[in-house]
């Protein structure tokens, strides 16, 4: 099934599109016929071949604030999908729905259905704890625990009881650090605090900490925004490598980064999922006026 392309008959006149157009008065008069300008349903293709995570009609409210509006999106197995959009567009909120991190915000309310490998993640049968073991998360600012490097990586396996003895735990820790490309750098100082590492190393430590739990999906919330370009490049390489084994959803502010690491891109605007498509297509031939404005630098 393909998603309906926006037609002229759907006239959900919206303040957002109005403001966007006010900013660009010269182009208001005559948009090309292929470009959608109205807001409502998503343009492009929200479906994918081998869906692993499926979000259907998701709405998120923070108290009275309607943060995510009727978002539907499929995420495939072993693909990297980038969520882009201006600040406050709801991309991080959507990301946090996927492992129920919004649960800890008292006023947050999520409606709609999200399935992980066919299982409803907001259903009764699934404990958020077990869910988060399967859907790991890497945060904007590197947040190693104030513990040793070893204990940081061993934390997940320990709480989930993944290792039965010290040797097995050592093995998991080493493998995870190896995968995160950090092992060489920290091999000799496993007992030193994780907070003593550089920013880029800290973020790779956090990635190692996440993959130590052996998740199926990894959510990354602007993982490079606090890092310098060299550290960013290393993380991007790492994401590329990890994409062989994990479904990766990455929120990013940088369009270059989205273009470099992702196979598909989803563009969010004020809580709406405006457009989803293959990365190449989004960046070369966007179907929606707002997407075009964003990638050409006119919003943002």
């Amino acid at each position: 099934m393909t998603m309906a392309i926006m037609t002229e008959t759907e006239t959900t006149e919206n303040r957002t599109s109005a403001t966007a157009q006010v900013d660009l008065p010269d182009e208001k008069r005559d948009p090309p016929a292929t470009i959608a300008t109205e807001l409502g349903a998503t343009v492009g293709n929200v479906r994918c071949e081998n869906p692993f995570v499926v979000a259907e009609n998701i709405d998120v409210y923070y108290g009275d604030n309607h943060a995510i509006k009727n978002v539907t999106l499929e995420i495939g197995k072993s693909e990297v999908i980038a969520l882009i959009g201006p600040s406050g567009c709801g991309k991080s909120t959507f990301l946090r729905c996927l492992n129920r991190m919004n649960d800890s915000i008292e006023s947050a309310r999520v409606t709609g259905k999200i399935t992980l490998d066919g299982q409803d993640i907001y259903g009764k049968g699934l404990d958020p704890v077990a869910l988060r073991a399967r859907v790991g998360m890497v945060f904007q600012k590197p947040n190693p625990f104030p513990k040793s490097i070893y204990d940081n990586v061993a934390y997940g396996p320990r709480i989930h009881g993944l290792a039965t003895d010290r040797a097995e735990l050592d093995d998991i820790v080493h493998r995870s650090l190896e995968r995160a490309g950090l092992l060489k750098e920290v091999k000799d100082r496993m007992d030193e605090p994780g907070t003593g590492l550089s920013g880029g190393q800290q973020q790779r430590l956090c990635i190692a900490r996440t993959i130590a739990v052996d998740p199926e999906v990894i959510l990354m919330d602007e993982p490079c925004s606090a890092l310098d370009p060299i550290a960013t490049a290393r993380i991007e390489d790492l994401i590329d490598e990890l994409s062989e084994d994990y479904a990766i959803v990455i929120v990013t502010h940088s369009m270059q980064q989205a273009a470099r690491v992702s196979r598909r891109v989803a563009y969010f605007h004020l809580g709406l999922l405006v457009e989803v498509d293959e990365t190449d297509k989004i960046f070369t031939n966007p179907q929606h006026r707002l997407t075009e404005d964003y990638i050409t630098g006119r919003i943002g």
Partner: peptide, 13 residues
Amino acid sequence: AAMRDGALGLGST
């Protein structure tokens, strides 16, 4: 808060 998020994100209760 990042500490707390980090731990919860790994699936801690």
